[in-house]
Amino acid sequence: MTKGLLTTTVGSFSKPDALQRARNQYARGKLSREELLELEREATRDVIALQEDIGLDILVDGEMARGDMVAYFGELLPGMELGGLVRSYGNRYYHKPIIKDDVHWQEPLTLEMWRFAQDLTDKPVKGMLTGPYTIVEWSFDEYYPSRRDAVLAMAQVIRREAQELEQAGAKYIQIDEPALSTRVDDLEMALEGMAVVTEGIKAKTITHVCYGDFASVYPGFLEMAVQQFDLEAANSNYDVADMFTNGTFPEEKEIAWGVIDVHSHVVESVDQVKAGIKRGLEILPPERLYIDPDCGLKTRTWEEATEKLRVMVEAVRAVREELGIE
């Protein structure tokens, strides 16, 4: 029997309240790095146990150690530092990272937590990275003469981290570029950066993109040097399926198909999700189609996420049975 319709998630889970409080205390210097790390590990254990219990095929570490997908790297990378507070909207502020000097990889950035998570389970755990274009675009740059120079330097850093993950045994590495939709003219630069990151990587490479963003960079985005596109589909009523009706999806690539709306409290019915999976099967055969939620689950409580994922897994099992696949 063929395998197919493997289940996974996009990457993030919401942080437990205790961890969120601990992060605030750590930021104010009231908690040690070691104490915070212990809470991050504890939350990661819970996230892995949760995913195993639900029966997912490919797991994530839930990003319990990351606040923001760019600041996390900005804080750790030689050549970068966190800048002062900048407002993003309303009363929300963040420390926007600054590229101060030549960025270079010195030691693993994400490996430790990935390894911790992978040691807890026999299922594969995805390595999660932010793409070079997004890191540059969401930071101040005081060093490089052009954004392209910065993106290519950052690409070397992320490439090295991807190699580390691969060497440690990661079978899936996801590299996200959410900044791309802002300036569609930068597509070439982002593609160039990703090609540097994934060249020679044997692990399966993935990039996640939200629907509205995908529509704005389609079809050029499909040239991105990854093997799998992780697409938001449920939230836009599967409109994205219509883009691929003429066999426009590249022959050698795969899709991770979002069938759970992460922006809604409402738990989907099994039938709804089955219908969503079948829309995906109109595009690709089951061995090239993975099933997951639309986006990171950090917008949902663990209870909501659990309920939604259980429905997803049940729907996948039902479709697998109908199709006679393992």
Partner: peptide, 8 residues
């Protein structure tokens, strides 16, 4: 100037 931290 709101794109910058105040001190900058």
């Amino acid at each position: 100037l709101e794109f910058l931290p105040r001190e900058v």
